[in-house]
Amino acid sequence: MKYLHIVATMDPEQLNHIFKALADPTRRRIIDRLRERPGQSLFELCAGSVAEGMPVLSRQAVTQHLDILERAGLVRVEWAGRTKLHALELEPLRTAAAQWLGQYLEEGRDG
């Protein structure tokens, strides 16, 4: 039960948003790309997807996925001049993992 002291007070709705956001392979792909290179525009995310040897991501699809990731708090927007860039926000992910996944990951481990 040692993890309990780090459990933050994330409301159930955000917890839902986060796990829903992670439940889609394209959104996990976007998360992976943003981890490799933070601060990408919509255009850059789509253009980069062409070279990945996987299905190319359309702007419409990426826009929708980014909205869902943003709502979950996993992506934050930064402006470089007049261009909107996207970067990962890992803290909510850690909090969600600690709050819900953590209890099961720890269970039975400490005997």
Binding site: S41, F43, E44, A47, G48, V50, A51, A80, G81, T83
Partner: peptide
């Protein structure tokens, strides 16, 4: 430049600001 040279499949590409409202 807003995009440094990167791999975009059939091409290498980069993007710059033309100072007249366009990339």
């Amino acid at each position: 430049f807003t995009v440094e040279p990167m791999d975009a499949g059939a091409v290498w590409m980069a993007v710059f600001d033309d100072t007249c409202g366009n990339l």
